[in-house]
């Protein structure tokens, strides 16, 4: 019984884990979960896990220790092996089945949308002196992050202020800086390493009339003119909207 468990439980676990890693990598779903620099590691790990699974299945056992000298806290007991198998398989399987490729409103509200560049901490801005945004139909194609940093950087503000821009993001209700009820937030998730550390960052979009009736977190392309009015003692990034249209989520839904 123990020999059977030593052979097949680890092999099965490694096979499942390796397959899940490779599935996420090759299906492209991994892009929502990880920064690009971490993705090749997932593919390599998936392959190595499958090789280990085969080696354990062929080799006959994954037990490296003598029973009394074994330092493995759980795997040395038969009940521990079954418990470990359950813990390793069940959460992964359930998460695999129920995970979407992005956060919902609950998590975003719990994290709080960052509207002030000072709250970004040590996050490195990738633009700066060499920043040269694309031009699309005479408009600057920029990100929410560019606008957020520009709100705190006078030199960057001059790049955008008063100019026509095009920004893609998700729409959210705005309750704080919205005295006339015609503003919404346009947000994106900013990731350092993985989705767990991703933080929602946003800029304001201001409509000439009431905001459109779109579901929360709809992906939209907003065109308009960028501005940085001083409100509440700081400059806010605000786009005065000329046009808004629903759009598909970008291939890379996170900003890095």
């Amino acid at each position: 019984m123990t020999k059977t468990l030593d052979r097949w439980l680890p092999s099965l676990t490694l096979t499942l884990w390796g397959s899940v890693l490779l599935y996420f990598f090759y299906s492209g779903r991994l892009s929502a979960f990880l920064h690009p620099s971490f993705r090749p590691g997932v593919m390599i790990a998936g392959v190595v896990l499958l090789i280990l699974a085969a080696a354990v299945a062929i080799g006959g056992s994954a037990s490296c220790c003598e029973e009394e000298a074994c330092g493995h806290s759980v795997a040395r007991l038969t009940s521990g092996k079954l418990l470990a198998f359950g813990v390793l398989i069940l959460p992964m399987t359930m998460a695999f089945r129920h995970s979407q490729d992005g956060f919902g409103m609950t998590a975003i509200e719990n994290r709080g949308v960052i509207m002030d560049a000072a709250a970004m901490g040590g996050g490195a801005y990738q633009g700066g002196g060499e920043f040269s945004p694309k031009q699309v139909d005479g408009r600057l194609s920029i990100s929410v992050m560019d606008l957020l940093y520009a709100s705190a950087e006078p030199t960057l503000q001059s790049e955008f202020a008063g100019k026509p821009v095009e920004v893609i993001g998700q729409l959210m209700q705005e309750s704080e800086s919205n005295p006339r009820g015609n503003r919404m937030k346009l947000i994106r998730m900013y990731m350092s390493c993985c989705a767990a550390d991703a933080r929602p960052v946003g800029a304001l979009v201001e409509f000439s009339t009431l905001p459109p009736d779109l579901p929360e977190l709809s992906w939209v392309k907003v065109t308009g003119v960028a501005g940085f009015p001083m409100e509440g003692g700081r400059n806010l990034a605000v786009i005065k909207v000329d046009g808004i249209e629903p759009t598909a989520a970008p291939d890379e839904s996170m900003l890095y």
Binding site: F24, I44, Q100, C193
Partner: peptide
């Protein structure tokens, strides 16, 4: 405020990032 799909998304991302190391 627990929402399972948010939890699953965050949980998997931590696993994917840490498992190779």
């Amino acid at each position: 405020n627990f929402h399972f799909s948010d939890f699953a998304f965050s949980f998997l991302s931590i696993l994917f990032e840490g498992i190779p190391f």
